[in-house]
Design a protein around this nucleic acid. Sequence first.
DNA 1: GACTTAATTGACGTTTACGTAAACGGAAAC
DNA 2: GTTTCCGTTTACGTAAACGTCAATTAAGTC
Lengths: 135, 135
Amino acid sequence: MLSNSAALDEKDISFSISDLAREFGVTTRAIRFYEDEGLLSPGRSGRQRVYTSRDHVRLKLIVRGKRLGFSLSEVREIIEMYDLDSGESGQLRYFLEQIKKRREALKQQRHDIELTLDELDSIESECKHRLSALS
Amino acid sequence: MLSNSAALDEKDISFSISDLAREFGVTTRAIRFYEDEGLLSPGRSGRQRVYTSRDHVRLKLIVRGKRLGFSLSEVREIIEMYDLDSGESGQLRYFLEQIKKRREALKQQRHDIELTLDELDSIESECKHRLSALS
DNA sequence: GACTTAATTGACGTTTACGTAAACGGAAAC
DNA sequence: GTTTCCGTTTACGTAAACGTCAATTAAGTC
């Protein structure tokens, strides 16, 4: 079964702390900090941290969340949505609520971005207009 | 001249600090802080601050920028783009550079938002699927 | 096996963006 | 005329998110 062995392979990928730091453009200090905050949970080989592909995914979510201006605790909430370990219906309904709120916030952000992009456009053309008037 | 008098009217609108606080959902403390940081520059009537429509616009930019996760100094940079007081060509070229960078960053953010929204969609449907399996 | 290099741990420092408390000033309501 | 409400000023406090530094250790390299 090819796909199965490929899946196994993927699970077996591991990363050092500097691998991750390089790939995502964050410092090792930050990565350890995220661990302190419970966002990452690497294994150990001796004293050295060994990160799995699960950590890799989580770190990707962290940096993306940061780019969107989310705090680490907001990022934590988002990450927790990805681990749907609970099958209880109350929990599931709660999650659906959270998802709804996140989506609304993200759409607000997207709207803010559109507004800002439009304004940048008009500032830019004003700028270019003045430039051409100078020559 | 109707349009002219309308323009004059607009310029004459003024706001108290609590007007602005209510409208934008920020504290008066925050508004004074923005003034300390040079982002707002209200007039005075005795000791009391009087905000013009210019301050109103700026505060709108500030809260929008905050929603997008920008720091106050980033917001300052954006605001400065709006006051094109300099007509020098070097300055104008510099502004065009800044505008380009901002636009790239905003587009990256928008992309991050699309990714996250898509993922929320699939988490949601997984969630709903499990819910229906419970009943 | 000395040297260098990468990683860890712990502790303290720093910046940003306000919050909070105290003490005071005017003005409006009763 | 005093209570009440805004607003102001000054100053100290604080939470978040790391940075920085020092001491230690482990792992390769020559």
